[in-house]
Design a protein around this nucleic acid. Sequence first.
DNA 1: TGACAATATGTCACATCTGGCATATTATTT
DNA 2: AAATAATATGCCAGATGTGACATATTGTCA
Lengths: 107, 107
Amino acid sequence: MKQTKRKQLETKGWKIGTAADFLGLTPEEAFIEMKMSLSRSLKEMRQRKHLSQTAFAKLIKSSQSRVAKMETGSASVSIDLLIKSLLALGASQKDLAKAIRSKSKVA
Amino acid sequence: MKQTKRKQLETKGWKIGTAADFLGLTPEEAFIEMKMSLSRSLKEMRQRKHLSQTAFAKLIKSSQSRVAKMETGSASVSIDLLIKSLLALGASQKDLAKAIRSKSKVA
DNA sequence: TGACAATATGTCACATCTGGCATATTATTT
DNA sequence: AAATAATATGCCAGATGTGACATATTGTCA
């Protein structure tokens, strides 16, 4: 739905589906977006610390392959793991909140 | 971390290391805090919509017992499930970001 | 180019999470 | 108080996520 139309409806007292789909995202899509966002944040933080995937994997007692999967947004990675990893890198809850909100670039 | 709070968490199935507690949140504790925060948000949103746990469970194709576990902060619930549930209730990523940052009160 | 480090992908046994059911506990209504 | 609704807790089989390993691909530098 277009922004303009939504605004018109809202000023007329309509309450349209909330939120998650404000930008046209279904809950599932929003969920995926969030994962991708966390993925990117993780990669950025790791690189900023000059850690290889292997070194980081050791740090969080995981494996290089799983770190790679985290950073490429593989479906086999849970948000739990992403968040635990980010926290291990020193991310604050504030950082995570920010990461969750940042959108992915569509090109 | 307060003794009373620790006890409550333990009865929910959480296992917390006993090591350095007073010096702020360990990543593990921060992780638990986040979950508790999401739990509270979920309960609030559901109640605001006047849905029983049973009705909400049907909505997200889960069970009343799991919804109860989500809201009581059981350790057997993943952040993935909490977030999916919140999104299903219409939470925006902004809402989630907010939820993640707010501290949980156990007392 | 070749050698080497970093990252990506596939597979799998094992661990954790999930839904559903039964049942217990707590609130609400009559 | 009894009946009823709502919520909580325990359990378990099946689903999903995990670490680890092998191997492939990509990147970098001599």
